[in-house]
Nucleic acid binder design. Structure first.
Length: 417
RNA sequence: CGGGGUGUGGCGCAGUUGGCUAGCGCGCGUCGUUUGGGACGAUGAGGCCGGAGGUUCGAGUCCUCUCACCCCGACCA
């Protein structure tokens, strides 16, 4: 993409009210635009990051489930059926203004905060036999939760993008098996996202979903919203909300030796058991023609929150620093002004592939501003092209992190990158 | 939901005990100069100060209500 084709701009300043690093940097760099408290538009550069995160998630999820796309709206009856209509306080609902005005209907629609209540009736329509179980399906979609207090930029929104996976089984054992498989896929995802080293499977309460446990994936982060109790060597972690000396003992670790450290939840998995199938009368028939409740699991990953977490973790004074796998582009071509340089750079841009490059083709912008913009946007590899480099048939390849510069012959560029 | 804070051109801000024509920086337009780390000069456009009501000869400034956003806490399926 050419810089001149991107309609957003970078900014040197951001409101003094904006405290969170991810909101500051992503806003200044033109990745996101705040529409209201806890709801952000993803601008072209930001949307590419989201899509990169999504494709990493898809790659792993497709190994264990099929992708679908559920509705964002649902009838309120869906939520009444599971008794969550009145118990879930973050529920957002809407009515059709015109229906109200014309007194045609008073129907209330829910803006889905999650989809257990929605997917289960669908599963029930198609899968009623042990022969069709187990199965799993997932989607990536915008969720709506009326958080009492939206905060910290992308970290806690009222509208956010989430990957949610649901699995259905004939037995607890079968559920557990899949649950472990999902856990492995999650580990692989955070690895690919460049968060692997700092992300720990963390035991947490089952919350509203289940009386049992659940597992969270917590990424160590100074600005995180959670505190976890961690034993790095044995790879054991608890969420503070449930950590007790007794639990620690059960796992053979000394409670007092656990590291207490701040983290941000980037995913969670719940063994739902038969809670929802009971509420929604979801049974399957076994081979002896006996009816049993379906066992279910639910597995989430906060896509947009991950973008926030990455921004919080990977930046310096100058701006963002994207891990290669999620960076909006592979290369940031900085063509220093002078029409000739820019024209010459055009060929390199084509050669490296328009899809892979952000090409700063602005002819009327000073070098310093281009460098500052590139550092702020944070594409890991910068390619500087100037009269100086062209005289040597070369470009200067700069690493965003180390600032190491290397002169590379244009003809060797593809080999060296 | 409790507590604290902030709303003034596109963005970031200043605006004195109420006073005259509401300022500054960035950005934007035009002209010229400039081009390896956020250039310079000239010139110009753009705001009835979140909204409603009130006090006053006079309100960005004081009062009441309200909306929005930010921060701390509670909550977070």
């Amino acid at each position: 993409m050419k810089f001149s084709q991107n309609f957003t701009k970078t900014s040197k300043t951001v409101s003094a009210e904006t405290e969170s690093i991810n909101a500051q940097l992503l806003t200044r760099a033109g990745f996101i635009y705040q529409e209201l408290a806890g709801a952000y538009a993803f601008l072209p550069l930001g949307w590419r990051v989201i899509q990169n995160i999504e494709s990493i998630v898809r790659e792993e999820m497709n190994k264990i489930a099929s992708e679908l796309h559920l509705t964002a709206l649902s009838p309120k009856e869906r939520w009444q059926a599971t008794k969550r209509h009145d118990s879930v306080d973050v529920l957002m609902s809407t009515k059709a203004a015109n229906d109200i005005a014309l007194q045609k209907s008073t129907a209330e629609y829910i803006l889905n905060p999650t989809h257990e209540d929605v997917i289960t009736p669908i599963a029930k329509q198609y899968v009623n036999s042990y022969k069709d179980l187990p199965f799993a399906t997932y989607q990536i979609q915008t969720k709506f939760r009326n958080e009492a207090r939206a905060k910290s930029g992308l970290m806690r929104g009222r509208e956010f993008i989430m990957k949610d996976l649901y699995s259905f089984h004939v037995s607890e054992e079968n559920l557990k098996e899949f649950y472990e498989m999902a856990k492995e896929r999650y580990v692989a995802i955070y690895e690919k996202l460049g968060l692997g080293e700092d992300t720990f499977v963390t035991l947490a309460s089952g919350g509203d979903f289940t009386e049992e446990y659940s597992h969270e994936f917590q990424t160590l982060l100074e600005s995180g919203e959670d505190v976890i109790y961690l034993d790095r060597n044995n790879n054991i972690a608890y969420n503070k909300e449930i950590a007790t000396p007794e639990d620690a003992k059960k796992l053979g670790v000394n409670f007092d030796d656990l590291e207490k450290i701040k983290a941000s939840e980037v995913g969670n998995i719940f063994p739902l058991g038969t809670k929802y199938s009971e509420l929604l009368d979801y049974y399957f028939t076994d081979k002896d023609n006996k009816r049993h409740l379906v066992w279910m699991g639910s597995y989430g990953i906060g896509i947009s929150r991950i973008m926030g977490v990455i921004a919080e973790k990977h930046h310096d004074k100058k701006g963002l620093i994207w891990p290669k796998n999620v960076s909006p582009f592979d290369y940031h071509i900085i063509a220093l002004p002078d029409a000739e340089n820019i024209q010459a750079s055009e060929k390199i841009y084509q050669e490296l592939g328009e899809e892979n490059c952000l090409f700063d083709d602005r002819a009327d912008v000073h070098p310093g501003e281009k460098f500052a913009d590139a550092d702020l946007i944070g594409i890991p590899t910068q390619i500087v092209i100037s009269k100086k480099t062209l005289e040597q048939d070369s470009v200067e390849v700069v690493d965003r992190v180390s600032e190491k510069k290397e002169l590379i012959k244009i003809k060797d560029l593809k080999i060296n990158l």
